[in-house]
Design a protein around this nucleic acid. Structure first.
Ligand SMILES: NC(=O)c1ccc[n+]([C@@H]2O[C@H](COP(=O)([O-])OP(=O)(O)OC[C@H]3O[C@@H](n4cnc5c(N)ncnc54)[C@H](O)[C@@H]3O)[C@@H](O)[C@H]2O)c1
Ligand SMILES: NC(=O)c1ccc[n+]([C@@H]2O[C@H](COP(=O)([O-])OP(=O)(O)OC[C@H]3O[C@@H](n4cnc5c(N)ncnc54)[C@H](O)[C@@H]3O)[C@@H](O)[C@H]2O)c1
Lengths: 208, 208
DNA sequence: GGCGGCTTGTGAAATCATTCACAAGTTATC
DNA sequence: GATAACTTGTGAATGATTTCACAAGCCGCC
């Protein structure tokens, strides 16, 4: 398979959300044009994105909402649940651990870790904050799929190195720092300061 | 000025962070090559990014850390503080309002809004949660620069429409929904579900 | 079963972003 | 002040992504 651009994958994720909405509204078919309008893109883009993976529509008609939904779930690897662990039980880690939207989309938070003795043992819902000292053993035993990093920036690289040597291969980092990982590890960053600076740039350079 | 790509602006933001680190380590000059290595890019990319805005280095030497820092601050519009309001005092809104990293980078959270009577009036630090009913009046009076959206997805579009008609021109949205805004409004999205789905795709389609 | 109105799937073209490659400038050294 | 060792700034080349444009296929209707 040809390498798929990151931008394509992000759009597939959007399309899937629109399809789920469309199901809720009882729509049975949808055209590339409708899909495009909701995502702020073009119908040609939608069709090209899908064409990397096969041919899912009917000419003259459009796409079957349930069929395309299923195909996108398949493509994105969402026909199974994923086990997610959260490392760093601070303000943002806590908010994420309690967020119900992830579970709804098939991402189950199965453990939260911290190294602060005051936090270890705290419970929310079904989760208890575990001791960071146990993380390697737990990973080897429970094989979580994805680790979310919510420690302070100074700690993030050290923690990542531990996670990677324990076997983690997919990471979502919230610390505002550029982490180094080996090439077989997939790393995504959520960097809010960078987004705000993007807004600052846009406000400053308006109408140039 | 030629239109600047979003990817360029994001990298400038990264470079700025490395420069600040370099200042802390007492470095006086830095080469495009060092800047590139920390950001996972190439030295040609760094020089090209900067060249859109002028010429900041000395051939044979590199860039003066304090001078380039100052130039990037200028380019990104960071020589001033920005007033930020947060709309939706739920789990994620609260985490963001209390986050000290924003203030450190010149983004001052000056107000938080909610429509739930149980939340209105709550205080953290110097902030009191205000009544959503007052937001239009406050915006006209206080002219905040950036609004961060942390309401449930169902409410997000309605809230955005209110913010935009009250005069907001820069928005950072956390709700997992694609918002419609007029062309003179800059909108950025932080969509964690999309990032997780990107990881799911990567894990599923490894080594193809 | 043929026609008109739609919509997909996809090469080709156009646009946009990154990388290459090198002249030109800087510093240090002798 | 000539030489060597570096490093920038930037056109040109390459590579990637998006848009165009249209043949091919489907449906409903007469
Ligand atoms: N809070 C926000 O809204 C926000 C926004 C953007 C980015 N971030 C980033 O997210 C990260 C966390 O922010 P926060 O506000 O939740 O901070 P926080 O201080 O509330 O939480 C950090 C937690 O990590 C734990 N920790 C520290 N070192 C650890 C280690 N080696 N192993 C395991 N746990 C460790 C701490 O005990 C603490 O509980 C930071 O990097 C921050 O910059 C936060
Ligand atoms: N919590 C997370 O970790 C997380 C992660 C990713 C995305 N999100 C998204 O962020 C948003 C907020 O999530 P949350 O977990 O903080 O939810 P929450 O329910 O804790 O908070 C939402 C808040 O918005 C307020 N609100 C509702 N309608 C409003 C309106 N019209 N005007 C003003 N305030 C209004 C509610 O009273 C509530 O306080 C959601 O869209 C969610 O999908 C949250």
């Amino acid at each position: 398979m040809r390498r798929i651009a990151d931008s394509t994958v992000r759009r597939l994720s959007l399309y899937l959300r629109f399809l789920e909405e469309s199901t809720n509204r009882g729509l049975v078919t949808i055209s590339s044009d409708e899909l495009a309008r909701r995502g702020g893109t073009t119908s040609a883009q939608v069709r090209k994105d899908l064409s990397f993976f096969g041919s899912f529509g009917k000419r003259g008609l459009g796409y079957s909402v349930p069929e395309l939904t299923e195909s996108l779930r398949e493509i994105l690897g969402l026909r199974r649940d994923w086990q997610v662990i959260i490392v760093g039980a601070g303000k943002i880690g806590t908010a994420l651990a309690q967020y119900r939207g992830f579970r709804q989309r098939g991402f189950r938070v199965t453990a939260v870790y911290d190294r602060d003795p005051k936090k270890i043992g705290t419970r929310w819902d079904a989760l208890t904050v575990r001791d960071m000292a146990e993380i390697e053993r737990d990973i080897q035993k429970e094989h979580p799929d994805i680790a979310v990093l919510t420690t302070p920036a100074e700690e993030a690289q050290v923690v990542v190195d531990r996670l990677v040597s324990a076997g983690m291969r997919a990471l979502l980092n919230f610390a505002p720092i550029q982490l180094q990982v080996p090439p077989d590890v997939t790393l995504k960053n959520v960097n809010m300061a960078m987004e705000l600076e993007g807004l600052s740039f846009a406000l400053t350079n308006r109408d140039r």
